[in-house]
């Protein structure tokens, strides 16, 4: 099942690669995911106010902003992970390749829009079973197919050479950075079209962080990446596009270079220059 989708990804890559302009300014052009007027409520508290943005295909989009500004909440609305929490409500329009995410079958949304979390959360199973889990729940059980997909995912997550001789050892035996790459491999196994990462490096040392960043840079060839980060240098290093959130609002989103060197808003400038936040 893997190959047609990969081919699809590859053709899309070669045909629709946009020029190096901010895709957000050219809506419709190679836009993977669009949000229009997204409001989000925890009970009666409104955490997001009318968020609208376009996530360009095969790019890394980063969300920055102070704690509690809603960047993670917004990330989690993109694969409807917030629905796992009680008493939450989302309003607005969210589209993946033009299809309405909010009315789509939720397991399909999450298969197509994968997620990696702040704290690495491998299952207490073997390395192999961790990566294979997503395939299993999506009905892929042929041994050869699963084995191939597990190997490919681990290679994409730059973990294969380190674990290929201990695939059936428990995932807990891996180091923190390896565990996080395992979680990335687990997410990649079901070939998501978008990969959401919620502060994936916040618990890692600089070397492990570096490896993940290099990895993300390579992964944007195969998927579209959205990352929430507290680390502004990280956004500056890896993101093509950066969005700045403040108090539940998207203040601005633009080319990363522009956000860091010549932001359009005073608040953004204050934040990226470290004057507050």
């Amino acid at each position: 099942m893997a190959s047609p989708q990969q081919q699809q990804i590859m053709t899309r890559e070669s045909v629709t690669r946009p020029a190096e302009t901010a895709a957000s300014k050219t809506p419709g052009a190679a836009c993977k995911l669009t949000a229009r007027n997204i409001d989000f409520f925890y009970g009666s508290f409104q955490a997001l106010h009318s968020i609208s943005l376009d996530v360009p295909s095969h790019r890394i989009t980063a969300f920055i902003g102070p704690s509690g500004c809603g960047k993670s909440t917004f990330l989690r609305t993109m694969n409807r992970m917030n629905e796992a929490l009680r008493n939450t409500r989302v309003e607005g329009e969210l589209r993946l390749d033009g299809q309405d995410i909010l009315s789509m079958d939720v397991t399909t949304v999450r298969r197509r829009v994968g997620m990696v979390f702040q704290k690495s959360n491998p299952f207490p199973k073997s390395i192999f079973d961790n990566v294979a889990y997503g395939l299993r729940v999506n009905g892929i059980s042929r041994k050869s197919v699963v084995e191939e997909a597990v190997e490919r995912s681990l290679q994409h997550a730059a973990l294969w050479t380190e674990v290929k001789d201990k695939l059936h050892k428990p995932a807990s035996a891996l180091s923190g950075g390896q565990q996080q790459r395992l979680c990335i491999a687990r997410a990649l196994a079901v070939e998501p079209e978008v990969l959401l990462l919620d502060e994936p490096c916040s618990a890692l040392d600089p070397i492990a962080t570096r490896r993940i960043e290099e990895l993300l840079f390579e992964l944007k060839e195969m998927t579209t990446i959205v990352i929430v980060t507290h680390n502004m240098q990280q956004a500056a290093r890896i993101a093509d596009l950066t969005g700045f959130f403040l108090l539940g609002k998207l203040m601005e989103i633009d080319d990363t270079k522009k956000i860091f060197q010549n932001p359009g808003k005073k608040e953004t400038e204050d934040y990226v220059t470290g004057r507050f936040g």
């Binding site: 796992a84 397991t107 999450r110 994968g114 997620m115 889990y133 997503g134 999506n138 997410a187 079901v190």
Partner: peptide
């Protein structure tokens, strides 16, 4: 985090309970 990890690859709530939560 364990539940969310399973949900995030497209598991249903029951699959999450049965495959991940119960063994844990």
């Amino acid at each position: 985090e364990q539940r969310e990890a399973a949900l995030a690859v497209g598991a249903t709530k029951w699959e999450t309970t049965w495959d991940i939560v119960l063994p844990y």
